[in-house]
Write a protein that binds this DNA or RNA. Structure first.
Lengths: 138, 138
DNA sequence: ACAATAAATGCACTTCCATTGCATTGGTTA
DNA sequence: TAACCAATGCAATGGAAGTGCATTTATTGT
């Protein structure tokens, strides 16, 4: 078990206090978060720093971006099993219409999608919307 | 074969010059368009009018909205076979990373997606990204 | 045909998120 | 320790979505 510091360094990400905090915040969250979510969690930090930190994490492939159709970009840590750097690795995101949370269903792989002749598929974005387990249990 | 006027009236949409123009514009396009696309096509018209016209078309279910992950909402006319008013009717959208166009693949239905226990699926958004037939033929 | 009514349009404005430029701070390295 | 480069913070911009209100246009009833 590596420390977070070691992990970040192994990904060529310089370790700073802010980055550690943001990484921990993402790690605690089980759902994808927006920039504003992070902003609200760290009122002291500047929005730009958070933005650029996330972008750095994205470039270094420890975070991936999720477009769940709410119009606001969300981000989540890549987990074991998430090979989002491999374009053909496709997993599912679930957006709850009730609590508005978006969850990575890393273990749910997407079936191969057929496209018409002449089309080349490089990437697939699949978002299922509905009611999540927490909300449906109410 | 109904005229456009008759068609709009059958959907309880009042016919105006602007609406006819916008409808024809959408009908000519084989791809989904953004509000800005429409705006550029009709420089005389106000953006608000275009915006509200599209919203009206959407409400009356002759246009559907597409979220292709570019961050900009696109719209396309519903075609025969597109029953987008039925939430379980799901068809595929293809976004070309080369020409940036988004196409409705109405005839390609989405396979049933399994979600974990406790999750209720109401709606699915599936966008395949890659290279379209026109661009791949180059 | 005309007045009353309702819908459509146009203009101005606001909000929200994403993104960039630039100056400053802070950490690394020669 | 000086020089350098990356990270941070502040300010500002841009783009898209959405709203309020006044005006124009169309519809309806008398």
């Amino acid at each position: 078990m590596k420390t977070i510091e070691e992990f970040l360094e192994s990904k060529n990400i310089r370790v700073t206090a802010m980055r550690l905090l943001i990484y921990k915040f993402l790690a605690e969250k089980l759902v994808a978060v927006t920039l504003s979510d992070i902003e609200n969690a760290f009122e002291k930090a500047d929005r730009t720093t958070l933005y650029r930190t996330i972008k750095t994490f994205e470039e270094k492939e420890i975070v991936h971006q999720i477009d769940d159709g709410t119009g606001i970009t969300k981000y989540a840590l890549c987990e074991k099993g998430c090979n989002c750097e491999i374009e053909t690795d496709l997993h599912l995101h679930f957006h709850c219409n009730n609590c508005n949370e978006t969850i990575c269903l890393t273990e749910h792989k997407i079936p191969q999608i057929k496209v018409p002749d002449g089309f080349v598929s490089e990437n697939v974005n699949l978002v299922v919307k509905g009611i999540c387990d927490k909300c449906s249990g109410q």
